[in-house]
Design a binder for these strands. Sequence first.
RNA 1: CGGGGCGUAGCGCAGCCCGGUAGCGCGCCACGUUCGGGACGUGGAGGUCGUAGGUUCGAAUCCUGCCGCCCCGACCA
Length: 516
Amino acid sequence: MAAKRENRPFRSAPLYLRLDINQNMAKELPTRAEDYSQWYVDIVKKADLAENSDVRGCMIIKPYGYAIWEKMQQQLDKMFKETGHVNAYFPLFVPKSMFEAEEKNAEGFAKECAIVTHYRLKTDPNNKGKLIVDPEAKLEEELVVRPTSEAIIWNTYKKWVQSHRDLPILINQWANVVRWEMRTRLFLRTAEFLWQEGHTAHATSQDAEKETLQMLDVYADFIENFMAVPVIKGKKSDGEKFPGAIDTYCIEALMQDGKALQAGTSHFLGQNFAKAFNVQYSNKEGKLEYVWGTSWGVSTRLIGGLIMAHSDDDGLILPPKLAPIHVVVVPIFKNEEELNKVTVAVEPMLKELRSMGLSVKFDNRETHKPGFKFAEYEMKGVPVRIAIGPRDLENGTIEVARRDTKEKRVMKYGDASREIPMLLDEIQKNLYARALKLRADRTTYVDSFKQFKEVLDGKGGFILAHWDGTPETEARIKDETKATVRCIPLDAKEEAGTCVYSGKLSMRRVLFARAY
RNA sequence: CGGGGCGUAGCGCAGCCCGGUAGCGCGCCACGUUCGGGACGUGGAGGUCGUAGGUUCGAAUCCUGCCGCCCCGACCA
């Protein structure tokens, strides 16, 4: 039997496309309307992106999910390099005393830190085959598992910076961090997650502020043009900003259920960390000055956002620019002879599409029927599917189906190499347009607290309303409605008004929403 | 940390109230028929019933402790 199979051309998809190791491809998904959060969890599992691990709050990112992360990484990394950054790597462990140095930062993260206290186990004398922590192996100083790396990085920058000639330092790192969250959700909030964190040091406040906003723009560019999700750029209120930052800028995206997702943050750190870690340089006049800093990051949470922004009741929908597989080709056949014919016929097209840089999977598994495969790739969000069978061979045609609209059409075989790239482009644009329309439909200008609550409990979404700017009002609104100030949009117009809660004077509308 | 729920085959669950040696669906394996939207038939494999102890002739089932997970709340850069 093995010999019989070996003779078949294209018996297996290339290894790099074999991302389909899930054997439990399930049938039905709850609809978004029925149960949005169950729908989300089911997509993550059924599209084979990730699963819960045996460690509470942690997830196993499966090959298909990780492939999406790799696409994101590739593109972001390219954009970081284009803006002058280089990659480096700093340790996972931060000595507690170092972590404490920037007081606000330490306080802000203290409640969710994992701590290493010992460095050795030993066999349990009272319980054969079991291990216990060796009390002899207690660390003199505990190590904090990084929830973010400012401390260890600024402690290092201290050694790297003496002169203005040493600046700026423009470093990014791809890493994992741990935040011991009380409640977790796959991709959106996990105890351990993957991210990138940029940490830069500058001679002047202006340079650092410019960097902060530049990276915010890079994120917005990436999320809009690659993830096809429109974002609102803004500044966080004091209550929501990063501990240790002077200003936190963010981008906020709207999900299909009307909740907001913070998709990335960029912090202007001022001289807070430079002072905490004593990072000083001699300026051109020979005077010592503290360095100015920034930090910025996006995480695997973006994958959660990607899912929630576009997908439908049949499964995941991926924008072509981030899809691990752009096109899947499903042969229709009754027997080996027919499969061989289809395979021979389809080969030049596969070659040509691949030569254009497209990731094309030819799924010639004989173990599943076409209908099963159609459903499977729909669940996995592959943007374009081509079906080709005996009927097509006679007519010189292929059947092309697009995932975003589920439209199918028949085209001439020879047109594929021209039409498919155009179609992928159109899908990318359509997803963005759709998401933009959703956001427009779900953004409401609100002028009273009554209306504020009605909108939240009705269609949800973004609310643009006046706010008096005080933390007290923000907290009360949060208590009463669970909505928070997502950001003060950068493009907010000056407009005199009164706070929807307190009635006090406000000069601009801010963005409110319930958020993930 | 407070309130609730749940741990039985790879996954989802029934069985527990009323104790008698474990079952269903999906998946998996084999063969045959199928194959243009999630095929079907026949046969088969697979379980320390979370864990430790107690009651009993006998425990998945009753009792106690422990562990873990999920949901709600608190919390969440």
